[in-house]
């Protein structure tokens, strides 16, 4: 089983000022799997992501990528070894063009950042266009990124994340703030990209329709812990999950 898991989290905890935001989380994602972490607000989903991508140092526990221990690595190194990420709010380079956003990611991932003498425009034009094409942004390549719609900005972020040729993509609420139409488009886009690139996906999401239509495995977090984990069918039938969600609604 060890070899089949792309991402493994073992007993991961983070304690902020005595408050356990994430507590003893253990999770394994197989290569090619599409997995979701769900749970009410404040359950620790974003912190879990931040622990995996190195933005927050864990208090204890381990993160393994392809069997390699990456616990405590800084984000700029983790992004270079196969983990791509999108953030809860669209996290892009607002005053650069769409093309420059994706191209900057390519330049960095391919180790060109130290080149201080060539002209940056000439680099990876084709690769950048291909990425924009696959994320549906080719028509807006020369627009200033920050002026586009929120849905477009999330697409840019996806393009940036894909530039590093990740094996696994971590998406923090990929449809947050989107209209119903944008959500449907994002769903189709993610499905297609995951298939084309045989990507592994791990995402958090509040839109349950979205979760159940794409995820093959679902983990439910509550108060920093994973309380249930299993296939969509198991989760749907689980009494604990109902209790958490109904409880949090009140």
């Amino acid at each position: 089983m060890e070899g089949g898991n792309l991402l493994e989290v073992r007993g991961l905890s983070k304690i902020f000022d005595g408050f356990a935001a994430v507590s003893e989380v253990t999770l394994a994602i197989a290569a090619g799997e599409i997995a979701a972490v769900i749970g009410p607000n404040g359950a620790g989903k974003s912190t879990l992501f931040n622990l995996i991508t190195g933005h927050v140092r864990p208090t204890s526990g381990q993160v393994l990528l392809g069997g390699r221990d990456i616990t405590g690595m800084p984000p700029h190194r983790i992004s270079g070894i196969g983990i791509g990420r999108s953030f809860q709010r669209a996290n892009i380079f607002s005053r650069l063009t769409v093309f420059e956003n994706v191209q900057a990611a390519l330049l960095s991932h391919r180790g060109c950042g130290r080149d201080f003498w060539s002209r940056s425009e000439t680099f990876y034009r084709e690769e950048a266009r291909a990425l924009l094409d696959s994320t549906g942004l080719l028509g807006q390549a020369q627009a200033i990124a920050g002026t586009l719609s929120y849905g477009n900005q999330k697409q840019i972020e996806l393009g940036i994340a894909l530039a590093g040729d990740p094996k696994i993509l971590l998406l923090d609420e990929p449809t947050a703030g989107m209209s119903a139409a944008e959500t449907r488009e994002t769903l189709a886009l993610l499905k297609r990209i995951a298939r084309e690139r045989s990507l592994t996906l791990l995402f958090t999401e509040h839109d349950m329709e979205f979760v159940f239509s794409i995820a093959q495995k679902i983990a439910v977090m509550h108060q920093g812990r994973i309380v249930v984990e299993g296939s969509p069918a198991t989760i749907r039938a689980d009494a604990e999950v109902r209790r958490i969600y109904l409880g949090s609604v009140q």
Binding site: T53, H55, P74, P75, H76, R77, S79, G80, R85, F87, N91, I92, F93, S94, R95, L96, E100, Q103, A104, A105, L107, S108, H109, C112, G113, R114, D115, F116, W117, S118, R119, S120, E121, F123, I160, A163, G164
Partner: peptide, 28 residues
């Protein structure tokens, strides 16, 4: 020339969004 280079582009990326820059692999 330096500002127009890939290195310069990394610097503008840092200006625009240091968090994102770190997660495209830039040691900010």
């Amino acid at each position: 020339r330096i500002i127009g280079s890939p290195f310069g582009r990394m610097l503008t990326a840092i200006r625009e969004n240091p968090e994102r820059a770190a997660f495209i692999g830039v040691n900010v």
